[in-house]
């Protein structure tokens, strides 16, 4: 039921783990199924230089977390902030319809991490 890309990101997730002294952290719970995702970022000169995730959730949730970190790494905050769950799902060659909500988790966690950074940096995002 999952695409090859999803299975690839599930079996070899990119950027798993925690960051020491992250500049921003976003954590979201999925109201639909109760899953949780956390994304931590390092920011230098407005660019996301490092990013890590941890996810408690299904295969799609893990794959979308992995994909969103890959998409955001090296991007400016503005570029990263506009990544949507649809972009993530497309980059994974699609998700089964009942799994689309899992990709919301990833895009939302990234946005929250960026907002957290901006708030800490004193600029409300």
């Amino acid at each position: 039921m999952y695409s090859e890309k999803v299975m690839d990101h599930f079996t070899n997730p990119r950027n798993v783990g925690d960051l020491e002294n992250p500049d921003g952290v976003g954590e979201v719970g999925n109201p639909t199924c109760g899953d949780i995702m956390r994304i931590a970022i390092k920011v230098e000169d407005n660019i996301i230089t490092d990013i890590k995730f941890k996810t408690f959730g299904c295969g799609a949730a893990i794959a979308t977390s992995s994909m969103v970190t890959e998409m955001a790494k090296g991007k400016t905050l503005e570029e990263a902030r506009v990544i949507t769950n649809k972009n993530v799902a497309e980059a994974l060659d699609g998700l089964p319809p009942n799994k689309m909500h899992c990709s919301n988790l990833a895009a939302d966690a990234l946005k929250l991490a960026i907002d957290d950074y901006l708030a800490k940096a004193g600029q409300v995002g």
């Binding site: 599930f10 408690f56 295969g59």
Partner: peptide
Amino acid sequence: RFLEGEALLLSMDL
């Protein structure tokens, strides 16, 4: 505890 069943099933299936 601390993990989710579907991810577990996928990993086992592999």
